[in-house]
Design a protein around this nucleic acid. Sequence first.
DNA 1: TTCGAATTTTCTTGTTGCGAACAAGTAAAT
DNA 2: ATTTACTTGTTCGCAACAAGAAAATTCGAA
Lengths: 221, 221
Amino acid sequence: MDVIVRKPLARRSHAERTAQAETKLVDAAVALIIERGIGGMTLKDVGELAGYSRAMAGWRYGSKASLCAYVVRAVGDEWIQALQQAVQDKVGLAAIHAATDAHYRFVRTDAARIRAFYLLWFDSIGPDLELKQVIVNIHARRQRDVEAWIKSGIAHGLIRADADVSGVAAQFCATIIGVVYQWLVTPTARHAIKALHEGLKQQMTRALIPLANAVSAPRLR
Amino acid sequence: MDVIVRKPLARRSHAERTAQAETKLVDAAVALIIERGIGGMTLKDVGELAGYSRAMAGWRYGSKASLCAYVVRAVGDEWIQALQQAVQDKVGLAAIHAATDAHYRFVRTDAARIRAFYLLWFDSIGPDLELKQVIVNIHARRQRDVEAWIKSGIAHGLIRADADVSGVAAQFCATIIGVVYQWLVTPTARHAIKALHEGLKQQMTRALIPLANAVSAPRLR
DNA sequence: TTCGAATTTTCTTGTTGCGAACAAGTAAAT
DNA sequence: ATTTACTTGTTCGCAACAAGAAAATTCGAA
């Protein structure tokens, strides 16, 4: 009667404990950020939702800001992986289009982590220097990738040689952020989000395609 | 000796008191939002910076969220005025370019109110329904304006008749937000912000100009 | 019209509850 | 035993509200 069957909590190594706590806490943080926003996510609730005490999250990460920065780093790394997987060894516009399509797919599946990631991204305009630095790094990485795709396209003769590489890359990154903002505000308007991604692809095509082909650029929709 | 010269606090009417309090409180809120971010802006400091007691801001607006919504409404109205002034009765691409240039000028002067306005704008991705509603309204208004400019351009034969009006307008609005995000994160990089605005103008030109003229679209920079 | 309560509106001081951050302790692994 | 993982206890600051003080307005007389 009083015998309670326990899961094999057995004997976990320190490394295991740490790793398990990490994932549980991050998952809890992501869930709470999505549910209540960043301001509504409290360290107390993160700890308790993860199955620990109220102070666990605060103890582990030192501060709410550090937890946020950690989440962005963690999800950002996954993201880089997925993007590389999608682009593979494509070059030029093909790479840009593949990256844009991949972005839309991620957003479309509305994976909780992506949503929390971008919510934190937009929070980086605040005075939190730690988070801002993480975002700046990811942003710089993204822009470098786009520049590399454009340069490779030029090298292969697929992109007009006189293209403003860093300018167009900056334009791409800025627009992606604008599109993401739209998605965060109206996550249900899938068609509109899809159209914005398609528009971005077309915008890049118009900006980068060799002049001889310019007039034959496909129309939107 | 004991005679103290007082400023003419005299007798202010209720309307005057209210109006003066309103401007002082909004100015204080804007200053604090810029200095410490939205999370760092406290109702206590807003009230005291405005020359009142710690509870003044809270009493006046009911809550921090309501104060934020009020600030966005107030600055948003000024903004609409200024934009109409800049566009006047222009049509088509001329209107879009004028609006974009005006946007850059506002951002370039870095008026404190504009900065606070957009900081609050990006905060609208949070769960604050009141602020979100205000932003959604401003956004809808902006998109309608752009659509009207495009339509007027089509009517005057200055824009290709088969343009996807709402699609291109959405693209414009999304990109503006992306550009603004860049500005908020790196407000010092004026050249880059200028380039993004120019890129946006060019992007709109490419998307809307009649096909016969497409190849002669000016290059960036 | 003018004076002066009574009333309404504006603003302040008092209080509560909650969260972040940290301190000091307990439990678990090495 | 010693280090590492985690919990309970405490402090401080802020948002939100309550109840009171001060300023303006209304209104009924003379």
